[in-house]
Amino acid sequence: MAGGGEMHSNCETVLLDNRTQQQDVWGASWNPISQEIFYESMVNLRPRQNRAMEILDPAIREQVKQIIHKLLGGL
């Protein structure tokens, strides 16, 4: 997980530079006050894997949710 970039693409670059595979990089935003997750990002647009800015696959959304809650939940 990466955070703190001006845009999701900044975090994507850091992850890819650290040998994360492109198919494993997903963009989402998290609001620490409401604990709400927004699954929309330009980095999610992939013609062969995801045809929208929003993460469409429920299993991937759940994985993203679990990672965010594990690392950031309750802050």
Score class of each variant (00 low, 15 high):
36 E>V: 11
49 Q>T: 10
19 R>Q: 02
20 T>A: 14
32 P>L: 02
39 Y>M: 13
28 A>M: 11
64 V>K: 01
61 R>S: 01
66 Q>L: 13
30 W>H: 15
52 A>W: 01
43 V>T: 07
40 E>V: 15
18 N>Y: 15
62 E>H: 12
32 P>A: 02
23 Q>L: 15
54 E>D: 07
39 Y>F: 15
66 Q>G: 03
42 M>A: 12
25 V>Y: 08
43 V>E: 06
19 R>T: 00
29 S>I: 04
48 R>S: 05
37 I>Y: 04
57 D>S: 03
66 Q>I: 10
53 M>E: 05
39 Y>T: 04
35 Q>A: 14
30 W>R: 14
25 V>I: 14
35 Q>S: 14
58 P>V: 01
43 V>M: 11
18 N>R: 15
36 E>Y: 06
61 R>I: 01
30 W>Y: 15
65 K>M: 11
57 D>E: 06
40 E>L: 12
40 E>M: 15
64 V>L: 05
59 A>E: 09
50 N>D: 03
56 L>Q: 12
25 V>R: 07
37 I>A: 07
64 V>H: 00
18 N>L: 13
45 L>R: 11
45 L>C: 13
40 E>S: 14
19 R>H: 04
63 Q>G: 07
33 I>G: 07
17 D>G: 07
39 Y>N: 04
29 S>R: 03
35 Q>H: 13
56 L>V: 09
63 Q>W: 00
64 V>I: 08
59 A>Y: 06
34 S>Y: 01
33 I>K: 11
66 Q>F: 06
33 I>L: 12
19 R>F: 11
32 P>Y: 02
20 T>M: 15
